[in-house]
Simulated assay, not measured.
Amino acid sequence: MQIPPEITYRNITKTEAIDSLIREKIAKLEKFCNYMNSCHVVVEKAHENPESGSPHRISIDITIPHGREIAVGYNPDKGKQYPPLEAVIRDAFEAARRQLVGLTTEQQGEVKTHPEQEMGAVITKLFSEQGYGFLKEISTGKEVYFHRNSVTNQSFEQLEVGNGVRFKETEGEMGPQATTVQVVDKQSSPRIESVPSAAEKPLGWN
């Protein structure tokens, strides 16, 4: 790494165990991408007593050559009450790893198929503040939930309604859920409200 990793603690006491865990996770990221320019991690206590989720937030910002950047902001907002800080850190770095692998694979030219042949769904709803959205599968019209940490090849904040994506699906507690979401068509149309018919195909779909 060209610039030594930077770890910032806000409203929380730094401990040797947490610091060692973060540095261990950074080292593992370098195994997937050994040409990272920089990595800045922020560990903060965002809330004192949230009704659910975690009081902690982990932000990870990674830069790599050619002006590319990976940004992860992780703050569990549902599920188990007050998950341990260590678990929140591991989940945040797993999200960063998925994005990093997707980006480096793209840069190395290993993904060479045509986007229009891979697009299986269209983003129809985004809830930016809550960190989730919904896809509609083109072939079936099925609506599928996805979390911000499922996005692998760009940041959640860059998504737009109408983006064409490919995804992998599992059955979650609340129904179909995408485990990975990769944008393959960045054109967007805010008017998309349902799965296009044969006469109403999304942008870039042949």
Rank of each mutant, 00 (worst) to 15 (best):
K186S: 05
A198E: 14
L103R: 06
I70K: 01
T170S: 07
F146Q: 09
M36G: 11
N11R: 10
Q108C: 10
K31Q: 15
K112D: 10
R148G: 06
V144S: 08
S52D: 08
I12A: 10
E69I: 07
E16I: 11
I12Q: 12
Q130N: 09
A95V: 04
D77V: 06
K201N: 04
V195Q: 07
V88G: 03
R166Q: 08
V43S: 09
K31I: 13
Y35C: 03
E193N: 04
P83D: 14
H147G: 08
Y82T: 12
R57G: 04
R10S: 13
Y145F: 15
P190E: 04
K78C: 13
N163F: 02
T179N: 06
K186G: 00
L126E: 14
R23A: 00
N153K: 05
K136A: 07
G131S: 09
L159C: 07
I60W: 02
S54H: 07
S188Q: 02
P4W: 06
F93N: 01
P196H: 02
R10A: 14
K112F: 05
Y74G: 01
L126V: 13
G204M: 07
T170A: 12
E94N: 08
I7V: 09
G131E: 08
E94S: 07
E24I: 02
H114T: 02
K78E: 14
G175M: 11
Q158L: 15
S194P: 09
N49G: 00
Y132P: 08
A27S: 08
M1H: 07
E24W: 04
K125C: 11
R166K: 12
A178V: 09
F167Y: 13
L29P: 03
S59M: 05
A71S: 15
R90E: 10
N153C: 01
N163M: 05
S52N: 11
Q158W: 04
L103V: 12
K14E: 15
L100V: 12
K45R: 15
E157A: 14
V43M: 07
K28A: 04
T140M: 06
N34L: 04
K201T: 13
C33V: 06
E106H: 01
K112W: 08
I123G: 04
T152R: 05
M174H: 15
G79E: 06
V144P: 07
S155L: 00
Y35K: 10
N37M: 14
K80M: 06
S188R: 01
P4A: 11
V195M: 04
P115S: 02
V72P: 12
P5A: 11
I62R: 01
F167L: 13
I70W: 00
Y9R: 05
K80G: 01
Q2N: 15
D19C: 06
E110A: 13
K78P: 02
I123D: 11
K28R: 09
E24G: 08
K201Y: 03
E173C: 03
T8V: 13
Y145M: 15
I123K: 03
E169C: 05
E110P: 00
P83Q: 05
P4T: 09
V161E: 09
I12L: 10
N206W: 14
T124C: 12
V183M: 03
H47C: 14
K25Y: 00
I3G: 00
C39R: 01
I60Q: 06
P50R: 08
A27K: 09
E94Y: 02
T124I: 15
S155P: 00
H56I: 00
E86Y: 05
V181N: 07
